[in-house]
């Protein structure tokens, strides 16, 4: 447990070694930002998952791909810090307990049961904001979130 405690302050005392996130990349440590960039590995995992799940559920990405990109990065950031892709469009009293519980881990229960994604990652074709695409490249994600 020594390594676990050394990784991030979030892990201390949590006792979930199986789902423990990796330590944050040291290259970010000197950067003072309101938010920490997720690792490219997690962004890629969540990008692929999003494409596959859109196809499987018959849903589409937002016409504004910046929305899609931000959500994918948010899921990746939660995967890095919590060990699970907790929905980034909600406020939780305890993120770590919530990630363990799983209801809001993507794809969340409302999405799986009723195709409801208030994060606007997966939109049914009748949604005003639904685009035509079920694919997004890593380059698109980088481009549309570059000015954040």
């Amino acid at each position: 447990m020594k390594a676990l405690q050394a990784s991030t302050s979030y892990n201390v005392g949590f006792g979930i070694s199986a789902a423990a996130p990796p330590p944050r990349p040291s290259r970010h440590r000197h950067v003072i930002l309101a938010q920490v960039e997720p690792t490219e590995k997690s962004v890629e995992i969540m990008r692929k998952f999003s494409e596959q799940y859109a196809r499987r559920s018959g849903t589409y990405f937002c016409v504004e791909k910046g929305v899609t990109s931000v959500v994918i990065k948010g899921l990746a950031e939660h995967k890095d810090t919590l060990g699970a892709p907790l929905c980034p469009c909600r406020h939780y009293d305890d993120k770590y307990a919530e990630a363990q519980q799983g209801f809001w881990n993507c794809p969340c229960v409302p999405m799986r049961e009723r195709k409801e994604c208030h994060c606007m990652l997966f939109l049914t074709p009748d949604n005003d904001f639904a685009g035509q695409e079920q694919a997004i490249t890593l380059e698109e994600i980088k481009e549309t979130t570059a000015n954040m």
Binding site: T68, V70, V71, P88, C89, H118
Partner: peptide, 9 residues
Amino acid sequence: APWCGPCRM
């Protein structure tokens, strides 16, 4: 929240 897509809209 920083990583909330619809917030950007």
